[in-house]
Design a protein around this nucleic acid. Structure first.
Lengths: 189, 189
DNA sequence: TAGATCATGTAAACGGTTACATGATTAT
DNA sequence: ATAATCATGTAACCGTTTACATGATCTA
């Protein structure tokens, strides 16, 4: 039971439709969890059946009818209970690291390409998260916002997402530089 | 198909038994992947059946007989092929971040406790990874080792693991400080 | 008129976790 | 004696991904 709490947390601050949720879980919300649309629609159905969220139909004239979901009191209580329990550690599980682990036994050039691709991906997310943070804190500076803003939760998780991607980018660049230098020294491999 | 490559990468540098692998996937190797013993034994069986690894029995007088596995040429080729393919992005998926996302709606003191627990866990891993890195590079400094050492793959992945846990620790401390300050300001919540 | 976006799913396959099982040896 | 470590699994369950499906509206 894990995705359910992520969905509840995402719905705390605003009513969202399934479709809007899928967008959030692709971008900003993905700072703290990641899920496919199919998973989200299934989870929304389950959560509603269990009374942790409540949906209401919104008929639109130009767009298809959608259902907006909000967290019920029971849902809020479930999140509270979840927060009180011990937290599982989170481990990195990353194809790219597997490839780098094998660095001394595989083609360096291919590996450097993979590292460059990931660095670019990380940079794009760094830019995105930077913008999201700026939008959340408005004209206040960070200290000020964290002290007096309402809804600092999403801001804090976005900060972690930002630092994670900066870590990815920096490490990719360092690893690629090391591998390139070794390749140059050996003229090949 | 993901764990298989992690196992292959782990077996590249040394012959290991299933049991030794489970230890590695709990500690050092967990820098780049994480798996339970049951998963590893099952994967080893499959990999051997497919000819990507080869096992040999080692009879011990004091301990139960074990099987040591090494990567075959076919296994090395499979890793090479894997490295050449595009890499999936890796996303954070962390119960703790879900809890912090809900920070403005749940009990702050419970949350601060969770953050402190995670910070301590991260610090323990930082210490461990620091030692592993020192052991790998010996008396050389990092630049020197990355340039001329053999087997820099495991060193590079360990560097990523270290940075990841430093990021965890720093963020936990920052988030906890912010939440504590807000709690103090409101006297309650 | 073709492609992106809004809106929501089903079904099958795969990967990972939890619970359980066994039995010997070594250290406290 | 008891607990930890070495050594290896099976079975059931749960969570995630991939593939497929539908249909409207808006944008180039």
């Amino acid at each position: 039971m894990a995705l359910r709490h992520a969905v509840l947390a995402a719905l705390l601050d605003e009513e969202l439709s399934g479709y809007q949720l899928t967008k959030a879980f692709d971008l900003g919300v993905a700072n703290f969890w990641h899920a496919r649309p199919q998973q989200l629609y299934a989870e929304l159905t389950r959560l509603e059946k269990e009374g942790l969220i409540a949906g209401r139909e919104v008929v639109q004239d130009t767009r298809p009818t959608k259902r907006l979901f909000r967290v019920t009191d029971a849902g809020a209580a479930e999140l509270e209970r979840f927060t009180a329990t011990a937290t599982k550690p989170s481990f990195i599980r990353d194809d790219l690291l597997v490839k780098v682990q094998a660095a001394d036994h595989v083609d360096s050039r291919a590996l450097v390409t993979r590292l460059a691709e990931r660095a670019a991906f990380a940079q794009a997310r760094i830019d995105l998260f930077g913008e999201l943070l700026r939008a959340m804190r408005g004209d206040r500076d960070e200290e000020e916002f964290l002290r007096h803003g309402e809804r600092v939760g999403p801001y804090l998780t976005c900060l972690r997402g930002l630092a994670f991607e900066q870590g990815n980018r920096d490490w990719c660049e360092r690893a690629a530089a090391a591998l390139r230098e070794r390749a140059a020294a050996c003229t090949g491999r």
